[in-house]
Design a protein around this nucleic acid. Structure first.
Lengths: 147, 147
DNA sequence: CTGCATCCGATAGGATACTG
DNA sequence: CAGTATCCTATCGGATGCAG
């Protein structure tokens, strides 16, 4: 496979779809958080670990490796006595913050409605046995089937 | 917890953060795909199953239930002889397509650079022993550490 | 300090069989 | 047709221990 096999990439239902690849990456537990920390300024490994708080070394390292592999961050090792490693966003990494901000804005703006919907869905079925509904047109499932 | 414990929601590193909740939802394997299918028009269960292609009933049903719970889709059951169920996006669900499109645009636009970066990362270390780099300032890790 | 290796529990997700 | 239930595997992710 010398030249890239083109891969249409126009098919949203393919695993090779750019959207899917991006979602697989940012959908994990830490990537976006790490990206957020690095957006502010370059950071050392330990700083990121402390900033994100809750992430294990394993996951932090894995996340950083993935970001590095994708060309989103640059890893610089300083051969000092206590080893020091800096991570810095690349232009590519920085360019992602825009779309991410859009998504975050949507989330913040609609979280209330979502949580209301969840509460309504989780609540026990409302008494709908009063009015006549036998029109055979269809029934909205207001609450969870069984859970 | 009767009244919501407030949960600042301003802390990006909390599991209760709106952004995290959204990412947890769209980060899974099928949600965005199902959303995409429904964006076009209301669909029956079987139609979605065929359109997404590759999704199992289990996952499709689970995804639809999640979307319904979050108030993104409305599920309507028609009590006909062969049962018929329609799924339709709500205004909330439709409003998400914008941010999603932004993300997709970014992915499509940068996928080439990302794949190049990946190829470079996966490739064996390039011979950088030529030029003088012994300034002790730091070394960029050009390729993967071991795998 | 930074990170890799290993063990281990939790969860996501696929295949299959069965039901209203 | 539209699910539900069960089983099983792969992966995710945390804890711990070791190393350069």
């Amino acid at each position: 496979m010398p030249t890239t096999p083109v891969t249409p990439a126009a098919d949203p239902y393919s695993a090779a779809c750019p959207s899917r690849q991006l979602l697989d990456r940012i959908g994990d537990k830490w990537t976006v958080l790490v990206l957020g920390v690095l957006t502010q300024s370059p950071r050392r490994y330990g700083e990121i670990a402390r900033a994100v708080e809750g992430v294990s070394q394993k996951m932090l390292t894995q996340t950083l490796r993935h970001l590095e592999r994708d060309g989103m961050v640059v890893r610089t090792v300083h051969a000092t006595v206590p080893v020091r490693v800096d991570y810095e966003l690349t232009d590519l990494g920085r360019s992602l913050s825009g779309p991410l901000a859009v998504l975050e804005a949507w989330a913040v703006e609609h979280i209330d409605v979502i949580e209301q919907a969840r509460a309504a869905y989780d609540a026990p079925a409302p008494g709908e046995g009063s009015g006549g509904v036998g029109d055979g047109r269809g029934v909205r499932s207001g609450s969870r089937p069984s859970r």
